[in-house]
């Protein structure tokens, strides 16, 4: 095996790209969970975003329009979840799972006419001479706009939750919805907005897969990325910057295992393919081992429905 063939700068650059879909989806889910709602439908919303993004981008011949449509599509699907859990007070776990199954089926139906079609390319941002800086240029300045956007969104979510009144209200709703209600906050409306944001982010993440990473449509293209995003929220113990860390870790192992294979590592392929998932499980186990701390970070009202009359 020739490990020197693996260039660390290139590896880091491509793990940043590989991490984008799960990072976007996990950021959205973090906000949803911070508001006290557990939406297990991330996978379904991602794949809807993937199919909408591709279909609209192909029709409009513009990746930007595709990304916007994907966010709208993900949000539209999350509206179903919001209606069922916030208005009809359905069980959040069951509704989320149903949303995933529904999204997988519906996306397959919509995607029928788009299999194998090339979407319009998403251009890289042009940083001019910065691109040519050795190592740093490769890592930082050769990406498409969505890579930077995903980091910006994490920063924005972090600042919003930590420094603003809106963030405080959102957290209050997630920690104790009765108290928030007593203070006069519209619990359901706030949660609805959080769910819509989560849907839009998942949709964006999905579209990144079908418009940039693959770029094509095929049934089940997200291949479980939504579930990884859910795991990363727990891994990050509901802290925005740790989502970045978790996503880069997962993306890094995904990229590294293929690079190891291409470099001729004498490790059975099956182990390499399962390694990103193994590491995710391992980290979750380590995180949950310290029960007290993990439980402290979880929003107290997570997964509990709220009804004003109670």
């Amino acid at each position: 095996m020739d490990l020197t063939a693996i260039n660390p700068a290139v590896l880091i650059a491509s793990l940043m790209v590989a991490a984008v879909p799960i990072m976007l989806a996990a950021t959205g889910e973090l906000v949803v969970e911070k508001a006290g709602v557990l939406n297990l439908g991330v996978e379904g919303m991602m794949i809807m975003g993937a199919v909408y993004g591709l279909a609209i981008a192909v029709e409009a011949e513009s990746p930007v329009v595709g990304f916007v449509a994907a966010a709208a599509g993900g949000a539209a699907l999350s509206l179903i979840f919001a209606f069922l859990t916030q208005v009809l007070l359905a069980n959040q776990v069951a509704t989320g799972l149903a949303l995933t199954l529904f999204g997988l089926g519906l996306s397959s139906l919509i995607g029928q006419g788009y299999v194998g079609i090339k979407p319009p390319p998403t251009p890289r941002l042009d940083f001019g001479p910065l691109t040519d800086i050795p190592v740093l240029g490769t890592i930082l300045f050769r990406h498409d706009p969505v890579v930077y956007l995903s980091v910006l969104i994490i920063a924005a979510v972090w600042a919003l939750l930590k420094f603003t009144r809106a963030g405080l209200i959102l957290r209050a709703v997630g920690e104790n919805h009765d108290a928030a209600h007593a203070l006069g906050y519209k619990v359901q409306r706030i949660r609805l907005l959080a769910i819509l944001f989560g849907g839009a982010m998942a949709g964006l993440g999905g579209a990144y897969i079908s418009l940039v990473r693959v770029p094509q449509w095929t049934d089940g293209i997200t291949a479980g990325a939504g579930w990884i995003a859910l795991a990363i929220v727990v891994f990050a113990s509901w802290k925005p910057w740790r989502i970045l860390l978790g996503a880069y870790l997962f993306g890094g192992i995904t990229v590294l295992q293929l690079n190891l294979q291409a470099a001729g590592a004498r490790i059975p392929v099956e182990y390499l393919s399962m390694s990103p998932y193994l590491i995710t499980i391992l980290v979750l186990v380590i995180m949950s081992a310290d029960r007290g701390r993990a439980a402290l970070n979880a929003p107290a009202a997570l997964g509990r429905n709220f009804h004003a009359s109670r």
Partner: peptide, 8 residues
């Protein structure tokens, strides 16, 4: 599996 093929 286009995603896997592209990654490879």
């Amino acid at each position: 599996d286009p995603a896997k093929e592209a990654d490879a």
